[in-house]
Design a protein around this nucleic acid. Structure first.
Length: 684
DNA sequence: TTACCTCGAGCTCA
DNA sequence: CTCGAGGTAA
């Protein structure tokens, strides 16, 4: 693709225009008709920008059928067409991520409104630009009679039955208004989208690339019963034809009126005199963009006063009084350069995509997990493919789709290794599981390394100073072959390692020494028994009270522990049945690892059973983790947020909203002093 | 997954 | 001055 922005010779320009029109038409078709775009919006925008630019330089080459002359593609034939009473415009070309574009916009508005004085500021309204599907809702005499998509702006598709299933959309409005067309966006919340895709994955259904596609797909679904089951929602932001309803004098007033009529209007919006307030709003929303429940593209700024909007008017296909200020794209195209296979603590062999670095949603992404074989197959991805990388809401970048037409001739399939890439042991796939596992166990350096790191974890044995690099050296130089070996390291061996000298070595030895005084739950957690995390380790420790009892417990006995089922029980039995594991435990004990006895009490005897505690602010005499541990030993649950069910909030200095919540809900609040006294009394 | 910050300590060169 | 560890935020 030519990135050359300089002026082309007419011949070359014409050739490129033809090419661009064809590409854009294809993508329009995929996007609007098939609901299966194969490139991200950002890429589409670039193509469109290039087309517009060349056409601007060569006005004589603009053809009537150029994609620049219309919005979108013709409506899909299997839904009835609807001609809009008032065209549905979009804010397409004037989009930019720079503040400069906004300043230019303001300057233009001022020029066209003939505002000369610097003291006179234009009143704007700013609202989020939803990443969904624009829709027109027509109410006649207060009743929803028709809902239509934007289509090409003039003619859209009738999606009334589907829209009626969306709960956020009123089917009737209280006031008797002869005609009211409300415009807004149908969207799907991110959380709903994730949940739905998870379900689809389980049931083998179609997986959607992003919430907008999903929303679009379901809105245009022919069977409205299917739409009814989908979590679509709606926000209003404008109007079409109106008869017999006072829309007020400004855009923001209009939104208030729509809200009063029970239309959902997103509450994050502002009115600003001049551009400074707009920029501020842009930055504020930018900061919390990922916390919003749905995807947005950017912010829309509109001249607020209708009188001024009328004065400014329209340019062929867009209002002259509005502009979209976009955020960095959450989806980008890049190339899959290679796939690496990483071996985790449990031996799981995970394919990781090495990508040509791209800037997505504010950071540079160069690698992303491909999860497992199923995912690789679902994507149909090969090395060399061009892929769409998405990073939104959550933080983890995903490869959501490949662009099949961009596959190079030398693309190679992704081959899962039959042998562990680290230790060459055979790799197995357990029946019914998606993951492949290295069978090398702790003989596999990769697994051993991860096991060491788990053992030293802050919530396990808490060995400070044992990091990634050190674990790697210890394993590679065969200085450690099990967690027990850690306690046999001496200062000379350690001091000879890279980036280690006597000081660091001694610090590590001190940390190891300190770690020997531990607790049973920490120790159990540190052993890295499959499916035994912090909570399960705690449950086992509290139930049995003693390691030897746990080791001797059989499959049935284990399942009497709360939250332990057959799967966990089997893993625990397995672990302790393995001779090597028993050896290691023996060695650890011999090295001096000990923990205080836990008085076994069953749940009913625990003084704080069924109580839910919440910690907030800073505790001065102990860490949050310690406080949590002690509470749990007394049978209490420790939760992160305050609700009706919370029994007590422990508030240290600097407590914020949780304290306020507690007071609002009338939950007991105690300070650290009172907390310590209570602990002391109950632990006795 | 990346970016950024802090801390302590090792390493290098004067 | 650089590196590794550790934490945290986006």
């Amino acid at each position: 693709m030519s990135k050359d922005k300089s002026r082309l010779e007419p011949g070359a320009a014409n050739a490129r225009l033809r090419e661009l029109r064809e590409i854009i038409d294809t993508h329009n078709y995929r996007y609007y008709v098939l609901d299966e775009p194969s490139i991200p919006d950002a890429e589409y925008d670039r193509l469109m920008q290039e087309l517009l630019q060349i056409e601007a330089q060569h006005p004589d080459l603009v053809t009537i059928d150029s994609p620049s002359q219309r919005v979108g593609a013709p409506p899909r034939s299997d839904l009835p067409p609807v001609r809009h009473a008032v065209p549905m415009l979009s804010i397409l070309t004037e989009t930019d991520t720079t503040e400069e574009a906004v300043l230019n916009f303001d300057a233009r508005i001022r020029r066209e409104l003939e505002i000369e004085s610097d003291n006179e500021l234009v009143q704007y309204s700013a609202e989020v630009k939803f990443d969904g599907l624009a829709i027109n809702l027509r109410y006649e005499n207060g009743v929803l009679v028709q809902a239509a998509t934007r289509g090409n702006g003039e003619v859209g598709e009738d999606v009334t039955p589907n829209v009626r299933t969306i709960r956020a959309i009123p089917l009737r409005i209280d006031q008797q208004i002869p005609v009211l067309e409300v415009r807004g966006e149908v969207i799907m919340r991110r959380a709903d989208f994730e949940r739905m895709n998870d379900q689809q994955r389980e049931s083998g259904g179609k997986i959607f690339v992003n919430p907008r596609n999903a929303a679009s797909g379901f809105l245009r679904q022919l069977n409205s019963q299917i739409t009814a089951q989908r979590p679509l929602t709606f926000y209003a932001y404008g109007i079409g034809e109106v008869v017999g309803f006072d829309i007020g004098n400004t855009h923001s007033e209009l939104l208030d009126k729509l809200h009063a009529l029970n239309f959902p209007v997103f509450d994050k919006r502002v009115i600003s005199r001049g551009v400074d307030g707009l920029m501020q709003f842009y930055r504020e929303i930018g900061k919390c963009r990922d916390d919003l429940p749905f995807d947005i593209d950017g912010i829309v700024y509109k001249v607020d006063k209708f009188s001024q909007q009328r004065q400014l008017g329209f340019r062929s296909r867009e209002p002259r009084w509005a502009i979209a200020h976009k955020y960095p794209a959450q989806e980008q195209l890049t190339e899959l350069l290679d796939v690496e296979f990483n071996v985790g603590r449990t031996g799981a062999v995970t394919p990781t995509a090495k990508l040509k670095p791209v800037f997505v949603g504010g950071v540079t992404i160069s690698s992303a997990t491909l999860h497992n074989i199923d995912e690789v197959e679902r994507l149909g991805v090969q090395i060399g493919d061009t892929v769409i990388v998405r990073r939104a809401g959550d933080v983890i970048p995903q490869i959501v789709q490949i662009v099949p037409e961009k596959r190079p001739a030398n693309a190679r399939p992704i081959v899962f290794p039959a042998q562990c890439p680290v230790c060459s042991s055979p790799v197995e796939r357990v029946e019914g599981e998606a993951v492949m596992r290295c069978t090398g166990g702790l003989f596999c350096p990769a697994q051993l390394k991860e096991t060491l790191l788990h053992f030293k974890h802050r919530r396990a044995m808490d060995i400070e100073g044992l990091g990634d690099k050190l674990a790697e050296q210890l394993v590679d130089q065969k200085l450690v072959t099990s967690v027990a070996d850690l306690y046999r390291l001496d200062i000379d061996t350690l001091a000879n390692l890279e980036r280690m000298a006597t000081k660091s070595a001694q610090n590590l030895l001190d940390a190891l020494e300190k770690s020997k005084q531990t607790t049973l739950p920490r120790f159990l957690f540190g052993l890295a028994i499959r499916e035994v995390g912090e909570a399960t380790a705690m449950a086992l420790a509290n139930y049995f009270g003693d390691l030897d009892v746990i080791m001797a417990a059989d499959f049935e006995t284990l399942q009497r522990v709360p939250d332990v089922g057959p799967v966990v029980a089997a893993h625990v039995v397995d672990f302790f049945a393995t001779e090597h594991n028993r050896d290691v435990i023996q060695q650890l004990r011999e090295a001096g690892v000990t923990w205080p006895k836990i008085a076994v009490r069953n749940r009913d005897e625990m003084p704080l059973k069924d109580k839910i505690y919440v910690l907030t602010g800073t505790l001065e005499t102990m860490s949050r983790d310690q406080a949590k541990e002690r509470l749990q030993l007394l049978g209490a649950k420790v939760s992160g947020s305050v609700s009706k069910k919370t029994s007590c909030v422990v508030a240290g200095p600097g407590a914020g909203s949780k304290l306020a919540d507690a007071q609002a809900l009338g939950v007991e609040v105690i300070d650290e002093q009172a907390f310590l006294e209570r602990l002391g009394k109950l632990e006795a």
